[in-house]
Design a protein around this nucleic acid. Structure first.
Length: 484
RNA sequence: GUCCCCAUCGUCUAGUCCGGUCUAGGACCCCAGACUUUCGAUCUGGUAGCAGGGGUUCAAAUCCCCUUGGGGACACCA
């Protein structure tokens, strides 16, 4: 049997794409690409009050940034469109009418307010919460009266009162639910729009989705959806419920919580390939726990549903940062220069007339220590700033007994050094160290402090040459005169 | 409250299906040492875990049960 693999990512555009959503999208995408199937993007915008165009754009933008290209969906189209649920209302209405006609569903006239009140009450009394089913058995007279009164109505599915609905989950195995515990849930809202469970089932079927891979929070919705599949006479897709990504407080990721939006990671200078690598390891691992992959293709080729774990995971930003550093180290000089430039510009560090080769050397010199692109600013600002400040540790080094005198000697010897190259500078430096009978650090440390304002950074000789003779002289001079 | 899911270092995980090779492996974080041209770089090393209790078995991280803990769902949200 060669089943066509078709999976989808179906976000509600009610907020920005975050780590959890991206992970779900990624797993679907990896599965599709590994299996040579299709990855479909569908926007579930039936929550009219919370869905926004901005959110849609944000989701598309971030998926693209991550490199998760969809075969069908918004701005791309496809044979099963439209891919926005609000553009498919007539489809849901048609199926809802069919269920109504077959008496598998019924109109419910209970007011939302009343139900909300009941629900609140039930929750307070810690009792059964579901719909009581009052409108399920209305007489035709009652229906007529209610209809005439002009009350708002919703459509509810008539669910079985007994029996068991079984979910055969790809990740969790068999899971059983008592039908008696499932209430007659709403499938069409009073405004004529479908609810999530209904639209989801109709679309997954119509779009010929073979595997529904989604977050664990949907596992308890699945029996309801299976009931719908049965009522509609649709064949069941395969289900796979991914463990959730929890916040550091162990609760469901909320859009309000700190650094979880993809936007933030993009702006801070995380590489999409690092994010993909990191996200792919949240709930999935190879049998040898491989951490770093050489490319997305390697992840695709190694990805499998068997490697997915059932345990909820907490996203660790520290690990991502480390991983991002690893990916930054792999970048070619021209590439990393291009990528870091916007951050230097934003920090007003560039005048615009910098020599490209020089800039490249500066960036490459910092490449090994930065873990996000934006860190180029805090690590390398001294290359660009006309004046630098000394941080606390640097100030301490400069205040040290004898530092000033040594810097003075250094300055004078550097002044007429020809040519001003890494080799020459090192040679002079070593000579002074020998002549003064001091340890290397005694000269090098204050010199670094004077030139960069810090006690950490790249090789002194290299940075000095990039800074240039003039700037080196100026900064040494300033440090000599500086009275801490 | 009811239902469902889950349970290996602080975190991500390998090992669990097919019990022994596991005095539990890797990675991040943290700590220490090395380098002495510093460091948040690099290298080396270290701390730290099978939630608890019962079974089954010659043998259990691995199988079963209970407890506990965590999470999710129970909306005219998705």
């Amino acid at each position: 049997m060669t089943e066509k693999i078709r999976v989808r990512f179906a976000p509600a555009p009610t907020g920005f794409l975050h780590i959890g959503g991206a992970r779900t999208a990624l797993f679907n995408w990896l599965f599709a690409r590994h299996e040579g199937g299709q990855f479909i993007l569908r926007i579930e915008d039936t929550d009219e009050s919370r869905s926004t165009r901005v959110a849609v754009d944000n989701i598309l933008e971030n998926l693209r940034w991550l490199g998760l290209d969809w075969d069908e969906g918004p701005e791309k189209g496809g044979p099963f469109g439209p891919y926005f649920q609000m553009k498919r209302l007539d489809i849901y209405r048609r199926y809802s009418q069919e269920l109504l006609r077959e008496e598998k569903a019924y109109f419910c006239y209970c007011s939302a307010e009343e139900l909300a009140e009941r629900r609140k009450e039930a929750l307070r009394k810690e009792a059964q919460v579901g719909y009581h089913g009052r409108c399920r058995e209305l007489s035709s007279q009652q229906k007529e009266d209610l209809e005439r009164s002009g009350r708002e109505k919703v459509v509810r599915l008539k669910t079985p009162r007994e029996g068991v609905t079984q979910v055969n989950d790809l990740i969790r195995g068999k899971v059983e639910f008592e039908n008696a515990l499932l209430d007659d849930f709403v499938i069409m809202k009073s405004r004529g729009t479908p609810t999530f469970n209904f639209a989801n089932v109709v679309d997954d079927h119509l779009m010929e989705i073979s595997h529904v891979i989604r977050g664990d929070e949907h596992l308890s919705n699945t029996p309801r959806q299976i009931l719908l599949y049965h009522a509609l006479g649709f064949p069941l897709p395969s289900f796979g419920h991914l463990s959730m990504i929890l916040g550091t407080d162990r609760s469901k990721l909320s859009k309000r919580e700190g650094a979880i939006s993809l936007d933030w990671y993009r702006q801070t200078g995380y590489l999409p390939q690092a994010l993909v690598n990191c996200l792919s390891l949240l709930g999935w691992a190879t049998s040898d726990s491989q951490e770093l992959f050489s490319s997305v293709d390697e992840i695709i080729s190694k990805f499998s549903l068997e490697g997915i774990s059932k345990t909820a995971a907490i996203f660790d930003p520290k690990k991502l940062e480390w991983m991002n550093g690893e990916y930054i180290k792999r970048l070619q000089p021209a590439e990393i220069t291009k990528l870091t430039k916007p951050y230097l510009e934003k920090a007003n560090l560039l005048r615009g007339d910098e020599d490209e080769e020089w800039l490249k050397k500066v960036v490459v010199l910092e490449q090994d220590r930065i873990r996000t692109l934006s860190q180029i600013v805090e690590y390398g600002d001294f290359f660009f700033l006309p004046e630098i400040e000394y941080d606390e540790k640097a100030a301490k080094v400069l205040r040290k007994e004898g530092a000033s005198a040594l810097l003075q000697i250094y300055r004078d010897r550097l002044k007429d050094l020809e040519p001003f190259t890494i080799e020459k500078v090192e040679e002079v430096t070593r000579r002074i160290i020998a002549e003064e009978k001091i340890k290397g650090g005694e000269l090098i440390h204050p010199a670094r402090a004077a030139l960069t304002g810090r006690t950490v950074g790249p090789s002194l000789f290299e940075l000095m040459v990039l800074l240039g003779r003039e700037m080196t002289f100026l900064r040494l001079d300033k440090a000599i005169k500086w009275k801490g």
